[in-house]
Design a protein around this nucleic acid. Structure first.
Lengths: 138, 138
DNA sequence: ATCTTGACTTAGACAAAGTCCAATGTAAGG
DNA sequence: CCTTACATTGGACTTTGTCTAAGTCAAGAT
């Protein structure tokens, strides 16, 4: 994701300080932040950045296919910078932490034709749920 | 789900007019309503029912395992009355319609031990996405 | 049948997450 | 360095959901 900014500029993206900071936050750790967490991290480097801009920028990155929006429960959406590798998610039922996982086999194949009701099925999302080591211990 | 009320009373549930109405709404059509939609339908039969009670009752029915909470996007949660048959969801990417589907095989088995990162994995949710017959035709 | 009591309901305040808008600022091509 | 179209800002607003204090009522006890 390091050449992300160049790639986006090639697509006519106007490069601003705010957008750079948001992209850097996502590029840093490999965690799935909420919009508010992204805003908090971005504020450390660019104190005057507004919440609206963070939301705008995240929305654009999603439309451009650079990050993935994950809404695992009724809480805040999280943003997954790992958009270029197919993967699924493992979510802690208590604290909401998300890990990327890679299940075996062809997930689409699990749905027989007679269960497709005429849909053109094009994608599968799988969410595994359970307690993470930290939460199950306590 | 017709004997739902009896079953719950057997478990010490106090049977009130409000709870009966909420249960009847869910029992009626086989649709996945949002909490607000349930409230609207309930209000038709019992005008003075409050939002808080609808939320409370839905929450109780979820804890009791009688209905399932589904959040397919970042929007409002939906409630699925079909809790006694394990099933997954097929969602139309354009119009948002949800169908219940029954994939083949053991879905939990798809996640190898080395991909579990110490989690106690207890559930899987699968969402298939695609275009429904109506939307793909256009 | 009526009483009692603790569980249930209510309205409205509150909170979290996100969207929208008009005014202002600025990146980048000319 | 000018221009201008695009980006940013702060704050109001919306949606979805939670909480609380006070009033109400279902159901077992008498």
């Amino acid at each position: 994701m390091s050449d992300l900014l160049e790639r986006l500029r090639g697509r006519g993206w106007r490069l601003t300080a705010q957008r750079r900071v948001v992209a850097e936050v996502l590029d840093g750790d490999h965690v799935h932040y909420t919009a508010d967490e992204v805003h908090a991290k971005a504020t450390e480097r660019l104190p005057e950045i507004s919440r609206a801009t963070v939301y705008n920028t995240l929305g654009e990155l999603v439309s451009l296919g650079e990050i993935i929006e994950v809404s695992t429960d009724g809480r805040a959406k999280r943003y997954d910078p790992n958009a270029h590798h197919a993967h699924q998610h493992l979510v802690c039922s208590r604290c909401g932490t998300i890990r990327d996982v890679h299940p075996a086999g062809d997930l689409l194949a699990g749905l027989p034709a007679e269960e497709r009701f005429g849909f053109q099925v094009s994608a599968v999302e799988v969410t595994y749920r359970g307690l993470c080591p930290g939460c199950s211990g306590a």
